[in-house]
Write a protein that binds this DNA or RNA. Structure first.
Lengths: 184, 184
DNA sequence: AACTAAATGGAAGATGAATTCCGCTTCCGC
DNA sequence: GCGGAAGCGGAATTCATCTTCCATTTAGTT
């Protein structure tokens, strides 16, 4: 499942380094995108390049790991939005929460565009399931156009994300999307 | 200004090749994005790599040229949408036209993301001007939220484009955007 | 038809970033 | 404190493209 043999017990300093590298990669990737080089990541983590490769056999694996964590965090956020009783409010919290996250992690765009190429299925399946739950509720309340599917919503959110990455005001993007989803 | 000394008169076969190369690059880039290699472009144009470089000193120049032409064509389309009297219809034609263009030229995303890095100003200035004209009209008619600026609209269109590139139904994207722009 | 400047093709070179490799260092159980 | 397995650093290698170069071919001119 994971990046390395999960059974192997790492030495204390090695585990520390692994965390440092992941943290550095997360910071750098989310800030600048997945096309930064490995050396700056190693430097930021305070280790040599060799150590990065000892923990993450390829750059792609590192990117995937950062992407996976990010999607996981988003799923958690979505889950908590789903706790909200009022469907309209749940949708609003979901969308504005996502828009804020996008505005914060500008680099995630390039991370995900690389990540997507590898394995989207895993965490995204959960996310689509969450979207379905959300949509079923708001649709039942007549708050969104009835033809909207979970993949549609996901795609539109990606679009919103891109607009935000380009510098458009996140709040505006969220509002436009929310209004746009309303039934005809 | 342009790619080569504009004054120089090319030999007939050279001019033909130049056109072939540009056409091949346009086709390949708009279809697969700007990260395709030079060799396939040369092959498709029926010339050697050296000939490509004789006409376009670097890959970047070729990308820029394709991007510039594309933006130019979009400006033309926008201009004709602006001819429409009814503001609502003009806006609709503008947005749906753009969405169709995005769906057709999936690769333009990567072309423009490279292109942007070099000189956006040129043709985009015109485009923003057109957007301003369009917005002034629809805003006066009370058709869109009053706080919407030309750059906002441009950003939102880019977002719509991204959703389309990802595979979301272009018509749906256009409708959602149009509805989302309506005043509060 | 002969001449020559322009144009061509594609092998070889340059580039730049990912990845490997291995001698040296650090941890940890004894 | 010792021994040696685990981990480290970063120079060297690999790899994939872009780009150059020049011997050869071709268009246009006299």
């Amino acid at each position: 499942m994971g990046t390395m043999e999960t059974g192997r017990q790492l030495r204390a300093d090695a585990r520390r380094n692994r965390e440092r590298i992941l943290a550095a990669a997360r910071a750098v990737f989310l800030e600048e995108g997945a096309d930064v080089q490995m050396e700056p990541i190693a430097r930021r983590a305070g280790v040599g390049i060799g150590t990065v490769y000892r923990n993450f056999p390829t750059k792609q694996v590192l990117i995937d790991e950062v992407g996976r964590q990010w999607v996981e965090e988003r799923c958690t956020a979505t889950a908590s939005a789903l706790q909200i009783e009022d469907p309209a409010e749940a949708l609003r919290v979901f969308v504005t929460g996502a828009s804020a996250a996008m505005a914060r992690d500008v680099g995630i765009r390039k991370v995900l565009s690389h990540y997507e190429e590898v394995d989207t299925a895993e965490a995204d399946a959960l996310h689509l399931l969450q979207l379905k739950t959300l949509l079923d509720r708001v649709r039942a309340a007549g708050l969104v156009r009835p033809d909207l599917t979970p993949p549609d919503l996901f795609g539109l959110m990606c679009g919103m994300a891109f607009a935000i990455f380009r510098g458009t005001e996140p709040a505006l993007c969220a509002e436009v999307l929310l209004r746009g989803l309303r039934p005809t």
